[in-house]
Each structure stands twice: as C-alpha cells, then as structure tokens.
C-alpha cells in the first residue's frame, strides 16, 4: 500500500496524479485499489471521466478531505430523508461557489461523482439540481434542462383528470 499518490488515466488519455486520500474518497477507485494490491503503480483507467471533470472532482475532494467519513454522512442523510426529505439547502459557501457552473459541467460532475461513487459530491450535485427544479413551472424546467416535451395533450389532460378527480368528488 505504499505510495502516497495514485495515477489515473482519464477518457482523454491524460494521466493524472492524485493523493491516496483523495482517491479513497471515491468508492470506485478505492475498491480497484484493494483489488489490485501488489500490482503496483499501474495507472487506473477511468474511461467515463474526462480530465477536466476529474480536476473539478479533485478540487472538491481537496476541500472536503477533512470532512467526516462519507459513510456516516450518508447515514445521516438517509435518516434525514426519512423525515425531511426535501431539505436540499446547500450550507457550505464553498460548495455554493463550486456548484455555480454551467449546466453541462454540473451534469458531468454528477455523472462522474456517480461513476466514481463519491457520496458527498453526488449529494451536493443532486441537491443543486433539485434546487434548480424547485419552484419552476414545468415549462421553465423543460427550458432550463433542455428536455423534450414528449407528452401529448391527451396525456396531460388524463393526468390532470386523474389527479384532480378527488377534488371534484369530495
């Protein structure tokens, strides 16, 4: 378990060094490391992550390296979710800045965090997107996130009817 830094190869064939501590924040890399104990110093391939995104991820990891262990964090979150699932406010100022980026970057980071299994980052991105969704009309959401409206008018009418039926009934 020797060296302090680990090299990974991103999808655009760049090799990036990152500290073991940061690497272990990603469950994916962590498990890879454990699997390949002894097989030293080969760069770990990360075909789903670009170098640009990875740098962002490392930034986040650097900032949060002293956070309590992510597992505990998740547990707390789960507990919270049971009661107040929609507490999606981002408390950390740095995080707010971090999140303040273009949508595609956000999405890429989310995907990377999902792939690398970095719990805290993933939560953060989800929260951010949820915040974006909040308080917008369906049309606004579609515009913001570039989603095709593939629902027919009939579908919508049916939906409204189904959900509004009890209102009329009662």
């Amino acid at each position: 378990m020797a060296s302090e830094s680990i090299s990974v190869t991103t999808s655009d064939d760049q090799t990036i060094q990152l500290s073991r501590k940061h690497a272990q924040m990603s469950q994916t890399i962590n498990s890879m490391l454990e699997d390949s104990v002894g097989a030293d110093q080969e760069a770990i391939p990360l075909p789903n992550v670009s170098s640009e995104v990875l740098k962002k991820v490392i930034d986040w990891c650097t900032h949060h390296e002293n956070d309590p262990a992510p597992v505990e964090k998740v547990k707390k979150l789960n507990k919270k979710r049971e009661y107040k699932a929609k507490n999606s406010t981002i408390s950390d100022e740095w995080d707010k800045n971090f999140v303040n980026a273009e949508l595609r970057v956000i999405v890429d980071i989310l995907l990377a965090a999902n792939y690398l299994d970095v719990k805290g980052l993933f939560e953060l991105m989800c929260k951010h997107i949820a915040n974006e969704l909040k308080g917008k009309t369906p049309d606004q959401i579609r515009e913001r996130f570039g989603i095709q409206d593939d629902l027919t008018e009939e579908d919508k009418a049916a939906m409204r009817k189904a959900w509004g039926a009890t209102k009329n009934d009662s």
């Binding site: 989800c126 369906p138 959401i141 579609r142």
Partner: peptide, 23 residues
C-alpha cells in the same frame, strides 16, 4: 438512479410538476 436521487430532494409539490415534464 441519479434522477431518483434528485427527486428525493424535492418537495412533493415539485414532484407533481416534474411528473408533467416528460414521459
């Protein structure tokens, strides 16, 4: 699965709206 995660962050009212966005 990421979407699900996002939705868990949303209040119920917003979920209803999200329901109207796409199939």
């Amino acid at each position: 699965e990421c979407l699900v995660h996002i939705f868990t962050q949303l209040p119920d009212e917003d979920l209803i709206k999200c329901r109207l966005i796409c199939k």
